[in-house]
Amino acid sequence: MRQRSACSLRSAGRIEDGAREIELCQSRSFADARLLADALGNVDEVAEFIGRNAPEE
């Protein structure tokens, strides 16, 4: 399902590298990220943990 979704998004021009996006999705643990956010209160650390950029304030 994720592979099909990534291919659809790539075809639509939403993402450039479907395989990389699948890898990122599979490597992320959003439940752990939430626990990390609660423990640290640091958005930059949490963003790094899930492989994204922290939102600008």
Score class of each variant (00 low, 15 high):
G51W: 01
E56G: 01
E57C: 05
I22H: 00
D44Y: 10
G51N: 03
A47Q: 09
E23T: 07
G51R: 01
V43Y: 07
D44W: 07
E56F: 04
L24V: 10
L9R: 11
E21P: 00
S5N: 11
A39E: 13
D17P: 01
L24S: 06
E48R: 13
L40Q: 09
A37Q: 10
R52I: 11
S27G: 13
E48D: 14
I22W: 05
D17E: 05
R34F: 15
G41R: 07
R10H: 09
E23L: 06
E56P: 01
A19Y: 03
A31D: 14
P55R: 12
G51V: 03
D44I: 10
R52M: 15
A37R: 06
N53M: 13
F30K: 00
E57Y: 08
L40G: 01
G18W: 06
A37K: 06
S5H: 14
R52E: 15
S8R: 11
R2S: 02
D44Q: 11
L35F: 07
L35A: 13
L35S: 12
D32F: 12
I22R: 04
R52K: 12
E23C: 07
Q26R: 11
D17R: 02
R10E: 15
S27P: 02
S29W: 03
L35V: 07
E45S: 10
A39M: 05
R2V: 01
A6D: 06
S27C: 07
D17Y: 02
N42H: 08
S8M: 15
S5E: 14
E56S: 03
A54K: 06
R2H: 04
E45M: 13
P55N: 11
G51M: 03
L24Q: 10
G13L: 03
E23D: 13
I15L: 06
R4P: 00
D32Y: 09
R10F: 06
I50Y: 06
A54N: 05
E45P: 01
G41H: 08
N53W: 12
A12T: 03
L40P: 00
A54V: 04
I22L: 14
E57G: 07
I50S: 04
D44K: 09
D17M: 02
G13M: 02
